[in-house]
Design a protein around this nucleic acid. Sequence first.
RNA 1: GGUUCUGUGGCCGAGUGGCUAGGCAAAGCUCUGCAAAAGCUUCUACAGCGGUUCGAAUCCGCUCGGAACCUCCA
Length: 517
Amino acid sequence: MSLKVYNSLSRRKEEFKSITEGHVGMYVCGPTVSGESHLGHARPYVTFDVIHRYLKHLGYKVRYVRNITDAGHFEEEGREAEDKIAKKALLERLEPMELVQKYTNLFHWAMNEFNTIPPSIEPTATGHIVEQIVMIEKIIADGYAYIANGSVYFDVEKYNTDFSQIGMPYGILSGRNLEDQLETTRELDNQEEKRNKSDFALWKNAPPEHIMRWPSPWGEGFPGWHIECSAMSNKYLGDQFDIHGGGMDLQFPHHECEIAQSAVVNHKTMAKYWIHNNMITINGRKMGKSYGNQIMLSQMFSGDHPLLDQPYHPMTIRFFILQSHYRSTLDFGNDALKGSEKAFKRLWEAYVVLQGLNGTPLTVNSQPMTEASLSSSTTVNGERTAVDEQVNTLLNEFDEFMNDDFNTAKVLANMFELAPIINGIKDKHIPITELQPATLSLLKSKMKTYIEDVFGLKQEQQGGDKLEGVLQLLMTLRKDAKTKKDFVTSDRIRNELTALGVLLKDEKDGGMSYSIQ
RNA sequence: GGUUCUGUGGCCGAGUGGCUAGGCAAAGCUCUGCAAAAGCUUCUACAGCGGUUCGAAUCCGCUCGGAACCUCCA
């Protein structure tokens, strides 16, 4: 059973084979830190976090590079070439780098809330100006870029002509062909500097008001948007690496231009597999700056936004994202989020119950259980029950589904089929003996691996030792009151805790448990 | 206009030829001092019209609707 990933480049699922055995190089386009991250940003970073985690789970050593775009782009190319970051900085009267730092910190905070594993390397565009200049010089030397008024442009037409012959036309990723694009040239284009409309900037001459600027062989300026990813991925992952990821909206022009730049320098497609996540939509429309329909992550967590009925915990959002496939759009809605909140809670509680289940003693042929026999699905204690069979099937499908282009939604569905079995055992509807010790053991280990290690889910709220102690005491008091049929006291304890957001639940056998809202 | 997608039950969403995911909501039942939780059960859909096929949500065609990209965007 091998991993298959959908490669945007070929538009089909392909068997994943890393370039260097046992190692994976993965580059994901990171955020532009000119503003706060919104809900839409959560999608790629959670998605690629799970991909990262799963690759590690499969035993790969992964170098995960995700950049921070802190150099700024054009507000509106062709008109006043203003730097986005510099513009905002003027408005807020901050140093550009102060602004960049602020939003970088906020981004890291949000990523931490989502329990994402930080990338192996997180290079910044401003920290790699030299590498970008060197790369641009190579492209010029090879004749695929030209200088105009202190700016440098990539000659798309020449590239397309030459590289089409080796099967790498411009548009290979997005399926566009250059002729079509030349025909759909827009009116407002008044950039005489460019030879062709489709040419893109590698280096931009900085107008006097532009704050962010660096010296270059072509005068003071700043790098074009696309070159940073080419330069940094090349530096840290080499001429060709395994996975390049990002949002679907980056396919064109960003990734297309990256491919072209890198191809000129290295004569090969930079990445073997291109993985693109789909968008989070709101009322069927992409959440994005241009639409003014974004909900910032801090607002999601606090509930402070007109569109939000309530705050949503980062784990609820993570779970929400995992419930759909990463290549489908995911529609935001309070009902959907609330559904995810409840669902995640139910799943987590079943998971906690599972950890407390103890099977029949592990005395198989009076031999100690080995790892191999624990994970084996062969019969150990005679006949296998239907439940045992079902649990094994559901568990084995975890890997199958993840190997099929990271289908987290199907894995979660299976977990929800396991939940009633787990709860049934707890409530004694299902005798624990229905499960073979090996099956129970596999159930515990696999659920742990997938929920915590691969999906990166964690408990929404930690009670802490002291709170735990207090609650245990209150539950003991309530049990005592119930035994004495002192329902006034027992109800008071329960009701007042409920008002504080702590739900007490009576168990079948007189036990009690709690959950914090 | 071009490129690429997409339309699944009250809501969110898996699913690419037969075995009719899953979650949330709703209803009933069981358990329970009551409640909650949990368990069981019910609600069973694939935009429309044709076609291919023994058989289609799944393939093909058309119609209608929606989206992303073509300008910064995860």
